[in-house]
Amino acid sequence: MCQTMRQETIFEMTSPCRDNFRITGYHFGNGEKALAIVGAMRGDEVQQQFICSQLVNRLQYIEQQGHITEGYSILVIPSCNPFSMNVSRRFWAMDSTDINRMFPGYDQGETTQRIAAAIFTALNGYHYGIQLASYYVPGDFVPHVRMLKTGYEDVETARLFGMKYVTTYQPRPFDTTLLNYNWQLWNTKAFSLYSGHTSQIDTGTCDETIDAIFRMMQRTGIISPRPLRAAYESIVIDEASLLHIKAPHAGIFRRVVVPNRRVVAGETLANIIDPYNGKTLCDVKNTADGIVFFTHNRPLVLQNALLFKIHTL
């Protein structure tokens, strides 16, 4: 007889005036801790929450069909921060701390340290870990798998997602409290998936990300093969190699190119418009042939702001 999904309250806490704060996990399969997936860690990660909800929905069906490999278990935590999402705040509403910068957490510490500790306890011991993440700079990306260079990063498994890019980057001091940094140090092969958007649901990139996660599950033998759309042969890059294009002036930002667009040296990537007279203050020019990996996505820009990252060819 097939297992059925089990729901677990991973953390619960009373609040001064609101309902209890709860973090809910969904378990599939039975046996060795094969894969844990974490969705929204911040209150504006709606795309990440939606993707996780779709994963829970499809995994229920897959489990009922007996397609989770015997002896493997999967955990999905769609939201680590429902309180902030309910009040449209990115960080913990009481003190603006970021749960994703509190790992590995401390169960006798401050509130968000305790939340992080409970999440980390639930996530500990899984062979693979996936976090659906968002970046600290607002913008749109080519969907990709991202890993910190801790010495434990697993590029070969990252390729199995079949996303367009796999990127690695050198952690800075403020990265040492991230979930994925600590996950790696605690022997989980951890991957951050950037699905392109954060506060809005884009069904195209959602589908691409969901497919990538199921593809990785198939290729690592966690679930049985099932039909999926075509995969990419991932390009692996160190983020330090990306070309940065900055804003020569502040003003209104009019983007000409979008992520994944092939561009040539000298091509206009964006215009910056004078906010008073509507004239073009400057064209933002590309300086090397390549592919647009990241773009600023706000209507206004500050002078010297990072506008584009280009994967040069």
Binding site: H249, A250, G251, I252, Y276, L300, L302, Q303, N304
Partner: peptide
């Protein structure tokens, strides 16, 4: 000293 979008310098 850098420009902000609308008629102000940071």
């Amino acid at each position: 000293s850098t420009e902000l979008p609308i008629d102000e310098r940071f």
